[in-house]
Nucleic acid binder design. Structure first.
Ligand SMILES: [Mn+2]
Ligand SMILES: [Mn+2]
Ligand SMILES: [Mn+2]
Ligand SMILES: [Mn+2]
Lengths: 218, 218
DNA sequence: TAAAAAATTTAGATTAATCTAAATACAGCT
DNA sequence: AGCTGTATTTAGATTAATCTAAATTTTTTA
């Protein structure tokens, strides 16, 4: 059962929006991510439900079925492997790859993606620190905390981002807040919740907004 | 002006079908290659004509405009570069890559394709011996002759194929008729126009059908 | 050169994915 | 329990790409 480009995007979106296991994903949330209207989402949810890819009940939102989740994870695996390829092999910057991967993630061949995985030597993380599902769809995510949840004196490795916009990624790169660097909290300004951090022996201030979107492994 | 997947396939097909410069490509020829009905082709030709990508007059077939040709060549460049990538980097066989490249050729980013070209060290030919257009759209094709046009005693390098089916490519590989090998004609059987050839000091018989589709550089 | 055959176009439908506007259901609060 | 605003669904249209069947044009052939 081959899915359309659009169906794959819906499944991926539902997967990403399904934060807690007991809460369903709402029609509006999906429409916002995909830049469509809620009415269009309803139509598609019915279609995905007919195909047994989502559990859908009118007015109650959706969750993915086992099958739907498997499809979503495959798309995510492809997306992240292609991002690694673009950065590692074609020298793209980490802020340039997402858009291209949005297209590449829909290329079908399973053999292609497994060969690519091998060629890249089975990377565990994509350029943004996100984990790459293995060929069996197993995705192991590490527990990460945003800088905004840390206390003065806490220290850890910059390991991920919560926001993938080009602007944010460029900002991080410019200011040396790069994946793998060790970061410690030296001061928290109560007035605006901005945070003074130390990275590579250099002190710098980051806003609350940035602190919320920068993830640390303790 | 971004083209759809479908529009790109039409342009590519018209390019491939446009053998002599004074003859137009027919509606039926296009429909056959694309596995659609002639009526659908007519619709699309009108649309491409409105976009100034083809020169179309009712009942007279089409040719590509300069702009249309440029787009077609870009798609062909992408197709062939991806085929090289699949064979050289991911260890695919030459009969496995065409189908995947049919999908990859529609990925947009110009930067991606130029980086890929660089990564592959600017290959001049794809795995089937077809020339790869450079980034300016310049395509230089070598003069090749099918084995069926050669005479006894003629000798040359196997340099291309006229037929890209999986069956034909697998057959050539199995029988050692591989790109780059030197081939000479030792006998032509007049009865059925089959040809006895010598490759790597080994004699073998090939049918007229094969001889017509195997291309040699003298 | 006129009929017959082949190629091509038109007319009218269909399917997937989308939209707007209107109707309906739910959730939170008095 | 009833009101009210938000979320969601339904109804009806639109667009791109396709189809079938019928009409028209071009080409071939006798
Ligand atoms: Mn991404
Ligand atoms: Mn990523
Ligand atoms: Mn090919
Ligand atoms: Mn090829």
């Amino acid at each position: 059962m081959k899915l359309s480009f659009t169906e794959e995007n819906y499944l991926k979106t539902i997967f990403h929006l399904n934060h807690s296991p007991d809460e369903n994903v709402s029609t509006n949330a999906i429409s916002e991510v995909l830049n469509t209207k809620a009415a269009s989402v309803t139509d598609m949810l019915k279609k995905l439900s007919d195909k047994k890819l989502v559990n859908y009940e009118k007015y109650q939102g959706v969750t993915l079925t086992k099958d739907g989740e498997k499809q979503a994870i495959t798309v995510i695996r492809k997306h992240r492997l292609w991002e690694v390829f673009l950065v590692e092999k074609l020298n793209f910057k980490w802020d340039e790859v997402h858009e291209i991967a949005e297209e590449l993630e829909h290329i079908c061949s399973e053999k292609l993606i497994n060969r690519l995985d091998e060629f890249l030597e089975f990377p565990k993380k994509d350029p943004h620190g996100d984990p790459i599902p293995d060929k069996n769809g197993v995705l192991k995510s590490q527990e990460l905390l945003p800088v905004s949840k840390l206390k003065v004196g806490d220290k850890g490795i910059i390991s991920g981002v919560r926001e993938h916009s080009v602007e944010f990624l460029k900002y991080l790169e410019k200011t040396g807040l790069i994946l793998g660097e060790c970061l410690s909290i030296t001061e928290i300004i109560t007035f605006d919740s901005s945070v003074m951090v130390r990275v590579k022996n250099h002190q710098q201030m980051i806003s609350r907004e940035v602190a919320k979107n920068l993830l640390i492994a303790l």
